[in-house]
Design a protein around this nucleic acid. Structure first.
Length: 853
RNA sequence: GCGAGCGUGGCGGAAUUGGUAGACGCACUGGACUUAAAAUCCAGAGACCUUUGGUCGUGGGGGUUCGAGUCCCCCCGCUCGCACCA
């Protein structure tokens, strides 16, 4: 057998798989289905190591399930709308569509070179009208159902580029490209009513038992459900803006008797009304608006307020009144934009009360505390206890107090129990060209008119100009001008496009039926969905994964499908990291620019010393990237894939090292030599039933069992270790006999089949070398014979007083007397017994023997 | 601040319900082969000691147990998520 030539072998098998159409998902199969999906990539132009890891993981699952007899759906596509395409258009004058298409074809070639078992017939790109026309229709259905609406909201506006910026594109308050100070601007935006599903999305998290706890928790926190009460405080006199009362949300209605002030947000309607006549209030509001809500600003900002001079009545205590402040720590975005302050039991309220000399009235008494000795000065008490200073509620615990308060509020018609969520509706409008057009027409007479279904898709115009500032769709001379579908009058198209998360919220449904004229058929969705295993980066823990969960429900409400959860199993992979390097000037260097110099590093060309820095996530800015294409051309795709799976568990960050790649490559070459051993091809006799050869056969069966368990539990690093262990066992069998050769052949064949999901090309080549004319890609997984998995005798540790002193070899399942006798006769125990009887002997079958002396 | 997770050799990491800590790999050391190197193969390897044996050892300290990486309590450190959420 020749030297292992990765590129030739890999090309050969990729062609054969392709010719055999080996990875097509079957329609109408009676096999159980399995849908494995990796988060589809943005077509940036080249794959990076994160992709390699993601797809290597997914392909193991796909190939394993296929071998296990499942009808596997394993598709790939392109999340093809987005900002980088527009930037390329502006910087290089190339059309975003052309740029994207070229990138897709380059990346498709790269992915094909990895030998991933995709059903390429289902490939999709979200930027094609054939894809986005379906989501335009979905949107119109949402609109019909009241799940989409338009309203004014605040956005980050870049005054130089005349466009909205995403939060990530605002750096230190300035546009990332223009450098202009970003303005807050109110714009009419489309929203999807994800909040309608807040309770449902939260409750169903419990059913996602094959999701990482971390992600489930993040979604819970993001949705942020709070139970409490809405309380109305009436003004003592009519306030500016015709304000008769202020509504407040609280989670602690039990502390109402401790209320000593009311505070509203600086952009609360009352504050805005006051500002019209009160210059001090106006100044305060302006100051609050400037402060911003950045982490640092919040941390250092003191609690400040503006006393409006207005007063409200306490809703439950006759004749009691409270002053009303505008306060910088009250947010309009949460609850009602107003709070009542109970300084004794809320730290922020206490800080505020101390700053403005407001009363601090404790109403919750910690257990076993004397009320006369309980005071609150600097630290609010938020723990459990009994109510006091609270009239009828005195003596109640906090939970009972909350219920009593809600009952009392309802009785006084001053409030009621309420649940508030942190989750906000999803704003989907973007002032961008390279996205899906929102299928709405604005008519002066008819208002907002949906584009009739027969006119879909609303396609992006091709001839756009990126030279001018602003949205190219608005600048286009003709595109926006249409006649109103209702009255026929001149009207204009909506010129915003959808947030690109819109496309990724349903692509997994398009894959199940990629040529269906309605996007997908309910039957195909019912058969394939949910995705059995979804794999991708944890950075989508909230956004994409929450949007998709919402979208699935919205599609349920609009009759597209009849289930709730799109992803039954989720695995979040860790990042691929690499050492960083800098030269003497602190400039980042590529790993390909440096070489080892004993213990340290030097520049490959200049020889200048190089500082090796931290191991960090691969990123262009720090240049600590390795191009997958370089690895594949040097070592082959199998090596890259195997190394990705070795050593580190998939959910953890891993370090890409040259020595690690070398190790994986060495191992594959060793296996290749093993399979090419001519003595194996000649071996044809029966497998040995005893002796060293039989032990090797047993080892192979153990490997099948262990490997299967490890793959199913996504412990791929351990699965790789099983391969090494079996390979070592093959090497350890020195016996030269026909029986040994048969055993060796069986072990190497097993090894080859177990290797196939991880390093599929070389496994096929080995399989062929072993004399087979079948393909592993379409072969069944080997079965482990349970009777051969267990070893007949085991080494058991013998402890004296809990410390290991010896080991004894015992038959499996040896009884207690036998184990005890063997232990007491062992040299390690005799040394400690010193002729006397042991106090006690503990025997744990097949595990341990502990002699207590 | 709140919430969650994690601390195991030089490194990545193994270790069912508490039961022989360090599987497997990387790096390392020695040997074989070679004129030599690479590759390959074989062997070794937690630390320390008075080395047929012993002591220590899973971030630190205590506890439960015949027995603790694993369970309980208290600290220390790191990572991630959310963050003026009423």
């Amino acid at each position: 057998m020749d030297q292992y030539d990765a590129s030739a072998i890999e090309a050969k098998w990729q062609a054969r798989w392709n010719d055999g159409d080996c990875f097509a998902a079957e329609t109408g199969s009676d096999k159980p289905k399995y849908y494995v999906l990796e988060m589809f990539p943005y077509p940036s132009g080249r794959i990076h190591m994160g992709h390699v890891r993601n797809y290597a993981l997914g392909d193991v699952v796909a190939r394993y399930r296929r071998a296990r007899g499942f009808n596997v759906l394993h598709p790939m596509g392109w999340d093809a709308f987005g900002l980088p395409a527009e930037n390329a258009a502006m910087e290089r004058g190339v059309h975003p569509g052309q740029w994207t298409t070229e990138n897709i074809s380059a990346m498709r070639t790269q992915l094909r070179g990895m030998g991933l078992s995709y059903d390429w017939d289902r490939e999709l790109a979200t930027c094609t009208p054939d894809y986005y026309r379906h989501e335009q229709r979905m949107f119109l259905k949402f609109l019909e159902k009241g799940l989409a609406y338009r309203k004014e909201s605040w956005v980050n506006w870049d005054p130089v580029e005349n466009t909205v910026l995403a939060n990530e594109q605002v750096v230190d308050g300035r546009g990332w490209r223009s450098g202009a100070a970003v303005e807050r601007r109110r714009l009419s935006q489309w929203f999807l009513k994800i909040t309608d599903f807040a309770d449902e999305l939260l409750a169903a998290i419990e059913t996602l038992d094959r999701w990482p706890d971390r992600v489930r928790l993040m979604q819970q926190n993001w949705i942020g459900r709070s139970e409490g009460a809405r309380v109305r405080f009436d003004m003592t006199a009519l306030a500016p803006g015709g304000t008769e009362s202020i509504e407040v949300f609280t989670t602690r209605p039990d502390t109402l008797h401790g209320a000593s002030f009311l505070a509203v947000a600086a952009n609360h309607p009352l504050a805005l009304a006051l500002a019209e006549t009160d210059t001090d209030a106006a100044a305060f509001n302006a100051e609050c608006a400037k402060l911003g809500t950045s982490e640092a600003a919040v941390e250092t900002a003191e609690k400040r307020g503006h006393n409006t001079g207005l007063e409200v009545r306490h809703p439950l205590v006759e004749s009691a009144t409270l002053p009303v402040y505008i306060a910088n720590f009250v947010l309009m975005e949460y609850g009602t934009g107003a709070i009542f302050g109970c300084p004794a039991h809320d730290q922020r309220d206490l800080d505020f009360a101390n700053a403005y000399g407001l009363p601090v009235i404790p109403v919750v008494l910690p257990d076993d505390t004397d009320p006369r000795e309980f005071t609150v000065t600097d630290t609010a008490y938020t723990g459990p206890g009994r109510l006091f200073n609270s009239g009828d509620w005195d003596g109640l615990d906090v939970e009972s107090g909350k219920r009593a308060a809600i009952t009392a509020l309802e009785g006084a018609a001053a409030g009621s129990g309420e649940v508030t969520f942190r989750l906000r509706d999803w704003g989907v409008s973007r002032q961008r060209y390279w996205g899906c057009p929102i299928p709405i027409i604005h008519c002066d007479d008819c208002g907002m008119v949906p584009v009739p279904e027969s006119d879909l898709p609303v396609e992006l115009p091709e001839d756009v100009n990126f030279e001018a500032a602003g949205n190219p769709l608005s600048n286009h001379p003709t595109w926006k001008h249409v006649s109103c579908p209702c009255c026929g009058k001149d009207a204009t198209r909506e010129q915003d496009t959808f947030d690109t998360f819109f496309e990724s919220s349903w692509y997994f449904l398009r894959f199940v039926d990629p040529h269906h004229e309605d996007g997908f058929s309910p039957e195909a969705a019912a058969y394939w969905m949910p995705v059995d295993q979804y794999i991708g980066g944890v950075e989508h823990a909230v956004l994409h994964l929450l949007y998709s969960r919402f979208f699935t429900r919205a599609l349920r409400e609009t009759g597209y499908l009849d289930f709730d959860e799109p992803f039954a199993g989720l695995m979040t992979q860790g990042m691929v990291c690499h050492q960083t390097f800098r030269d003497g000037d602190g400039k980042w260097l590529f790993p390909t620019e440096v070489e080892r110099d004993g213990e340290s590093w030097r520049h490959l060309e200049t020889g200048a010393p190089v500082t090796a820095g931290r191991i960090e996530k691969m990123s262009k800015s720090k240049r600590n990237v390795i191009d997958p294409e370089l690895i594949i051309s040097t070592y082959g795709a199998d090596t890259a894939r195997l190394f990705m799976l070795s050593d580190s568990p998939p959910e953890r960050d891993m370090e890409w090292t040259e020595s690690g790649v070398e190790g994986a490559s060495r191992f594959l070459k060793r296996l290749y030599r093993m399979a090419g051993d001519p003595s194996l091809a000649a071996a044809s006799g029966p497998l040995p039933a005893e002796g060293a050869g039989a032990e090797l056969v047993r080892a192979a069966h153990r490997a099948i069992m262990a490997m299967s368990e490890d793959i199913e539990a996504f412990r791929f690093n351990k699965a790789v270790a099983q391969l090494y262990t079996l390979a070592n066992a093959v090497g350890d069998l020195r016996e030269q006999s026909p029986e040994a050769a048969s055993a060796r052949r069986f072990a190497v064949e097993t090894l080859t089949r177990l290797l196939a999901p991880m390093a599929p090309h070389i496994a096929e080549e080995m399989w062929e070398a072993l004399g087979h004319d079948t393909m592993l890609a379409t072969s069944a997984w080997p079965d482990a014979d349970p009777s051969l998995v267990t070893e007949s005798s085991i080494e058991i540790g013998v402890q004296v007083n809990g410390k290991l002193r010896d080991t004894v070899s015992l038959p499996r399942d040896a009884d207690e007397d036998q184990a005890r006798a063997a232990a007491l006769a062992s040299a390690g125990v005799l040394r400690y017994l010193d002729g006397s009887e042991p106090k006690k002997v503990i025997v744990v079958k097949n595990r341990i023997i502990n002699v207590v002396v």
